[in-house]
Amino acid sequence: MRPLTDEETKTMFEKLSKYIGENIKLLIDRPDGTYCFRLHNDRVYYISEKILKLATNISRDKLISIGTCFGKFTKTHQFRLHITALDFLAPYAKFKVWLKPGGEQSFLYGNHIMKSGLGRITENTAQYQGVVVYSMADVPLGFGVAAKNTQECRRVDPMSIVVFHQADIGEYIRNEDMLT
């Protein structure tokens, strides 16, 4: 376990800022305690200082996971967000998409979102903007990337993709062993 280097921090922030914009500041600068990012087995964990100090007692090879896993660095040093980061992305999300009850299941099985499943979408969402996906009852379901901007979404036919799937809470069941 180690702190992120400057380069790694930058790549991760760039990815996070696609979903929550400048709200990253609120993750770093928290009034309720000190929180930090730590790298372990190529994964980035968001941990409170208290838990981090406790975790130092555990040897590196025995430690599987601490705090919240935000994502991992690929072998090419890109950052991939994991669904576990959703709890922190959802409250600060700038662009949101709400799904109709009929479209929910398809999304939770890992499919892209069609126009037919789209309930609401934040105004002036740009194309390829990172969005957080909610159900109509405002339960965060996952996140993705807008395939079309809001204006285009209105015009396209019902079977065209409007949001590309990236992660959904169905992965807690489908990819249980991957999410540490």
């Binding site: 400057d6 930058k10 922030f13 500041k25």
Partner: peptide
């Protein structure tokens, strides 16, 4: 930790 936080804020 405060230094680390400051560094991250600078990057932002």
């Amino acid at each position: 930790f405060s230094d680390e936080r400051q560094k991250q804020l600078d990057i932002l």
